[in-house]
Amino acid sequence: MAADQLTVKIGHVAAVSGPLSYFGKDNENGARMAIDELNSRNITIGGKKAKFVLLAEDDAGEPRLATVVAQKLVDAKVNAVIGHETSGTSIPASKIYHDAGIPEISAATTSPKYTEQGFNTTFRVVVNDKQLGRTLGRYAVKDMKAKRVALIDDRTAYGQGIAAEFVKGLQEAGGAIVTKEYTDDKKTEFGAILTKVRASNPDLIFFGGMSAVAGPMLHQMKALGMGKLRFIGGDGICSDEIATLSQGAMSDGQVVCAEAGGIEDSAKAGLEKFNANYKKRFGIDVQIYAPYVYDSIMTIVEAMVKAGSAEPAKYLPVLAQIRHSGLTGLIAFDQRGDIRDGTLTLYTFKNGHRTRIAVTK
Rank of each mutant, 00 (worst) to 15 (best):
L218H: 06
I263A: 13
G236N: 12
D240S: 11
A249C: 07
E189H: 07
I205S: 03
G261S: 09
L229I: 02
V197F: 07
I300W: 02
D265M: 03
G236D: 15
A214G: 00
D295H: 00
G215R: 12
N277P: 05
L245G: 10
P202N: 12
T299S: 15
G233T: 02
I193Y: 08
A258C: 08
S211D: 14
G261D: 08
I300E: 12
K196C: 00
R281K: 14
S246T: 14
M226Y: 06
F282Y: 11
M217P: 03
G234A: 05
I297D: 11
M217H: 09
D265C: 00
G283A: 07
K279A: 13
D295Q: 02
L218I: 08
S246P: 14
S211E: 14
P291Q: 06
C238E: 11
A258S: 13
G209Y: 09
I232Q: 14
S200L: 05
A269F: 05
Q247G: 01
V213E: 05
I232G: 10
V286I: 10
K273E: 02
G215V: 14
A192R: 09
Q247T: 09
I237D: 15
D285M: 04
K222G: 03
I205K: 05
H219C: 00
V213P: 01
G283K: 06
L218E: 04
L245F: 12
L245W: 12
K228T: 02
I297R: 01
E241N: 01
K196V: 07
A269N: 10
G234L: 14
L194S: 05
V213T: 09
Y292D: 11
G227W: 09
E241M: 10
K222Q: 13
A212H: 09
E264R: 03
S246C: 13
D235C: 04
D240P: 06
E259D: 14
V256C: 05
N201Y: 06
F274G: 00
A267L: 15
F207S: 02
L245D: 05
G234N: 13
E272F: 02
G253H: 06
G209D: 08
T244C: 01
D285W: 00
L245R: 14
A290W: 12
T244Q: 11
G233M: 10
A223G: 10
T299D: 12
S296M: 04
A223I: 09
A199K: 05
A243T: 13
N277V: 10
A269E: 13
L218D: 01
E264F: 02
S239P: 01
L229S: 07
C257K: 03
K273Y: 06
S200H: 08
A249N: 10
F206I: 06
F190T: 07
P216L: 03
P216Y: 01
N201L: 11
G233F: 11
I205G: 03
V293I: 13
D203I: 11
V255S: 09
Y292F: 10
I232A: 06
M250D: 10
G262L: 04
K196A: 08
S266C: 04
M298S: 11
